[in-house]
Design a binder for these strands. Structure first.
Length: 219
DNA sequence: GACCAGGCACATC
DNA sequence: GATGTGCATGGT
């Protein structure tokens, strides 16, 4: 636990959700037009500001290559140039290609077809891809495929640890289990809750916290 | 100029 | 299993 004192309440996961939703209202995530775009965004946003991801996706759209077939036919260095604003562009170009190869080979480039597959199988398949870790896999499962899987990210860990709910050092699985054991598996709730955590994280729960005015703070 | 952002793989101990 | 490092842009 952080030794620094934050002006915090002793809040349950349910209470945190209620307060965030009351304060912010629905977040309408994921910010993407199609399930495929959501999956691409999930890879591009790794350790990256969303505004930069939007620039990269805009480039893909502008050049008419935001589809699995189009990206598949693109030389990797050309793809890298288009997604440049999202950072780590060489690595991410290869990660996108790896996902799209898998997507084309196994589901014929159809998110609808992919959605019909078993949740656990899909998660294992995604995690087997180079460049898809737990957060990216779960983001695709929840936000592109409507699977009831909670997404854990840096904000989730930071917020829950500062509220004394779980140590920062606890594993991804431990955090995820906490949500899965606390709530019924509800796609709408999981969608909204993770989005709200990101929102309050951006507004108040940065590495250097700004607790004044935070809906989870006493101050 | 420093810090931060909706991670991940890989090397090393 | 824990810890360190490379990957990179763009906004504040």
């Amino acid at each position: 636990m952080s030794k620094k004192a934050y002006p915090l309440r002793n809040l349950s996961l349910q209470a945190i959700y209620d307060k965030l939703f009351a304060f912010y209202g629905p977040q309408h995530w994921w910010p993407g037009e199609t399930p495929f775009e959501v999956a691409v965004g999930a890879i591009l946003t790794q350790n990256t500001n969303w505004a930069n991801v939007e620039k990269a996706i805009h480039n893909l759209k502008k050049h008419g290559v935001l589809s699995s077939q189009a990206i598949h036919g693109l030389p990797v260095d050309r793809l890298a140039a288009l997604i440049r604003p999202s950072g780590y562009y060489n690595i991410k170009a290869n990660r996108l290609r790896a996902f799209i190869d898998y997507f084309a080979d196994n589901y014929k480039g159809s998110m609808a077809r992919m959605k019909k597959a078993n949740d656990k199988t899909l998660r294992e398949e995604l995690l087997a891809l180079k460049g898809v870790g737990q957060e990216t896999a779960d983001s695709i499962l929840l936000y592109a495929l409507d699977k009831p899987i909670f997404v854990i990210d840096a904000y989730t860990k930071r917020i829950l640890s500062r509220h004394g709910i779980m140590e920062t050092s606890a594993s991804y699985e431990a955090y995820q289990q906490l949500f899965h054991n606390t709530f019924d598996k509800d796609v709408t709730l999981f969608n909204e809750y993770h989005a709200l955590l990101v929102r309050v994280g951006k507004d108040y729960c940065k590495p250097e916290p700004k607790c004044a005015g935070c809906p989870l703070s006493n101050s």
